[in-house]
Each structure stands twice: as structure tokens, then as C-alpha cells.
Design a protein around this nucleic acid. Structure first.
Lengths: 129, 129
DNA sequence: TATGAGGGTTCCCATCATGGGAAGGTCAAG
DNA sequence: CTTGACCTTCCCATGATGGGAACCCTCATA
């Protein structure tokens, strides 16, 4: 199977597959006589794994760890759980930070008339607060 | 006042001040005879404005709009409010997305023993779900 | 068989906000 | 006059992703 079909079946773009290969996240694909990358069942499974991990917000560095744990049949589930929970904590912190920004801004906007007059606490606060 | 002190007083790094100047977000600073950038009250106020907007998560493009509204004494507060609320909506969407990722991952992790055995639903789910 | 569409390949550039660092000029204090 | 802290410009890097050029390969169809 060529890279285009592998991309279609796994949800990882051809661009990203080449990228993942170039940074060593996945092993270099074997090549056809004409130089095309070839993908089989094993590679597809790896790409699908990465696609799902990415959708859960894992970074490339974390996906590298996950891949190692995935391939290690003797891994302790504790290792996986630790990695996952660390990621959960980071995601929660990010979400909280964004929610705080949103809340502060909404608070200001609620005090803004939203009419034709120029006074607005948002600008006011940014200008001198 | 030189760029270093302006940076210290406004919370915008010297690097970023130069950057904001280079992309036209702020006007080029006047220069001393030896070529040093000079900052006065007006410039400091603008930088502090930007520093606060940035802390609220506004993008450079949005800060450009905010700056225009700030400088326009005849602005309608409706314009400011619209911009702010659009940003609030974007922030909320982002926070929700991250919370969803976190929730899905936490759900998986809760079903993982976290012990020495290899089975873990996190890996399982990533591998075949 | 020629040709065109639609793959594939590598390589470079862009995003966004930010920082690191080098090479060299300037200033103030000892 | 030296030293150290500051300034200048310029280039490079991040992380994940995409755009696009220039070129090669393959297959179906006129």
C-alpha cells in the first residue's frame, strides 16, 4: 500500500507520515522499486495508534513513550497509567488557564454596554489596569 | 528610557518589543544618537496595554484590532464587546476541547490497574479502538 | 502508443509567539 | 582606560502542520 492510501486509512496525513519518519518516531518504510514507500498491516496499526494518541492531545515526545510501552509486551500498566495521568494533569492545567482568561474577559464584557457610546470597561481595563 | 527598562516596566520582553515593532504592531521607536530605541510615557502605555491583552490570550491580530479601538476615541463599545466576546467563545471552545481529551484519557486511566501487570486499557484502546 | 491525471519523491518555506546566541557598538562606574 | 552591563542586527530554533515547486512514476483511456 502506498502512502496516500495509508494516510486515508489511518487519519494521519501523508505529510505527517513522512514527517514522523524523518524525526524517527516511526521506522523508515520499505520502498518499492520506484522508491515509493510501502505500508503493510504492522505499519498501519502503528499509524492508527499514533492517530488516536494525537487526537487525545499527546505530544510527539509522549507518543514516543507510548509507542515504546505499546511495543513492550512486558510493560507494567503502572508505567502507562503514570504517563497518562501526567498528561491528564497537564491538560487540566491548560484548560483551567484558558477558562480563567475567558472568565476574566467575560466579566469585563458583561460590564460593557455594547452600545454606540465609546466607554467600555474592556478597553479601560487594558489601558490602565 | 531604553528598551531594557521599558521591558521591565511593562512585562513585554525586549525581544518581543523589537518583534512587535518589526511586524508593525507598534510604531518604530525613536532612536538616540547612538541608535538605541527610546521609550516615553506614551510608548509605555501602549506596551502595558499589549502586555495585558496578551495575558488575556489575545492573538497579535486581535491585539492589532484592540489597539485601533483603544486609540479611536469615538469607537462604539459594541465593537469592543463583539471582539471580546468572539475571543471568549474561541477560548471556551478550546477549553472544552481540552477538557474532553482529558476526560477521555482519565476514563481510560481509571480502568487501568496501575500495577505490575501489562494489561492496560489505555494502550488497548490506542492500539485497537 | 501517446498523453494526461493523479499518484509519488525531496526540499524549502510558512505559520505563531517566543527565546537563544553571536558579533559588535555604547555607556557608566571604578 | 578597562570592565561589565546594556544595546544593535541577524540568524536559528521551537512544535505540529501545511503549501507548493520541481520532478518522477503509473495507470487508464483516446
Amino acid at each position: 500500500m502506498n502512502i496516500g492510501q495509508a494516510a486515508a486509512e489511518t487519519g494521519v496525513s501523508a505529510k505527517m507520515i513522512r514527517h514522523y519518519e524523518s524525526i524517527g518516531l516511526i521506522a523508515p518504510a520499505s520502498r518499492s522499486e520506484s522508491g515509493y514507500r510501502r505500508y503493510g498491516e504492522t505499519e498501519l496499526r502503528t499509524l492508527a495508534f499514533l492517530s488516536r494518541a494525537r487526537r487525545l492531545g499527546f505530544s510527539v515526545a509522549q507518543m514516543r513513550e507510548l509507542l515504546a510501552l505499546w511495543r513492550d509486551e512486558a510493560r507494567a500498566s503502572a508505567d502507562v497509567k503514570r504517563l497518562a495521568m501526567a498528561h491528564v494533569a497537564a491538560l487540566d492545567a491548560k484548560a483551567r488557564e484558558i477558562a480563567e482568561m475567558s472568565g476574566a474577559l467575560r466579566h469585563l464584557a458583561e460590564r460593557c454596554g455594547g452600545d454606540d457610546r465609546p466607554f467600555c470597561p474592556i478597553i479601560d481595563r487594558l489601558a490602565s489596569g
